[in-house]
Simulated assay, not measured.
Amino acid sequence: MAPERETGVRERAVSGATATSRPRGARLDQPRPPRRRLLPEWDPEAFGRLSESVARFLGTGRFIVWMTVVIVAWVVWNIAAPTGLRFDEYPFIFLTLMLSLQASYAAPLILLAQNRQDDRDRVNLEQDRRQNERSIADTEYLAREIAALRIGLGEVATRDWMRSELESILKELEVRQNGHRSDTGSFPALPAERPRGRDADDR
C-alpha cells in the first residue's frame, strides 16, 4: 500500500496542480468575494449631505414655528377633545417621549454636520496655507530679481554719469590748452581743423 501511495503522490506532483484546482481564496490574481455584512450598507457622502440638510433645517425659524404649532395642537387636542379621542392625556408622556427621541437624533446629526464642516475648513485652511507659501516664494523671487536688476543698473552708464565724465574731460582739455598756450604763445590746431586735402600717403 505504501508504494502505491507514493506513486500516486508522485503522479500528482508530475502533473502539477493547476490554477483551477487551487482553492479560490488562495488566488492572488482574482478579487476576493465580498463579505456578507449584518449591518446595512449606506453611502457616507449621501448620509452626510442628508445630515447637513437636517441640521440646517433645525437651525431655522421655520422649524421652531412648526414645532411650536405641533406641540400646541397636541396639548390642546389632548385637553379639549373627548375622552375617547385623547391619545396622550396629561402629563403628556408620549409627547415627552417624542421630544426626547427627536433630541436624541438631532444631536448626532448636528455633530456630524459640524464634523463635515470642520473637515472642509481644514482642507480650505491647508489650501490657503499652500497658496500663502507660493505667494511668499514668488515675492522673495521677485525681490531677488529686483535687487539683481538694481545692482546691474548701478554698473550701467547713465546720462548723468556720461555728462559728468564729458564735463571733466572738457575741463581737462581746457586746462591743457591753456597751459600749452601759455608756454608757446600760439594755439595748436585741433585735428578737426586740419586741411581736408589728401595726405601724401594716400597718393
Rank of each mutant, 00 (worst) to 15 (best):
I64Q: 07
I64S: 05
V123G: 00
L109D: 01
R62C: 11
L97P: 01
L112H: 06
F63H: 08
L97S: 06
I136T: 14
P82G: 07
L101Q: 11
V72I: 11
V70Q: 09
W77Y: 11
M98R: 14
F92D: 01
V69P: 00
A73Q: 02
L95Q: 00
L97I: 10
V72L: 13
L109C: 08
F92C: 01
T68N: 12
D119R: 14
W77C: 07
V76G: 04
I71Y: 02
M98H: 06
P91G: 08
I79A: 12
W77P: 02
I71M: 06
P91D: 04
I136A: 15
V65K: 13
T68S: 15
L99W: 04
D138L: 13
Q131V: 02
W66A: 15
T83P: 03
R122Y: 10
D118R: 14
E133V: 04
P82S: 03
I110H: 00
A81Y: 00
E133A: 07
L99T: 05
V76M: 10
V70E: 13
R130P: 01
I136V: 12
V69A: 13
T68E: 10
P82T: 00
P108N: 03
A107D: 07
A107T: 12
V65Q: 06
I93M: 11
R134S: 04
L125F: 06
V70L: 15
W74I: 02
I93E: 09
P91K: 05
Y90K: 09
A113V: 00
R62D: 09
N115A: 15
D118Y: 04
W77H: 15
Q127K: 13
R129L: 09
R86S: 02
I136G: 10
P91A: 00
F94R: 15
V72H: 03
L101K: 12
W77F: 13
N78H: 03
I136C: 12
T68F: 06
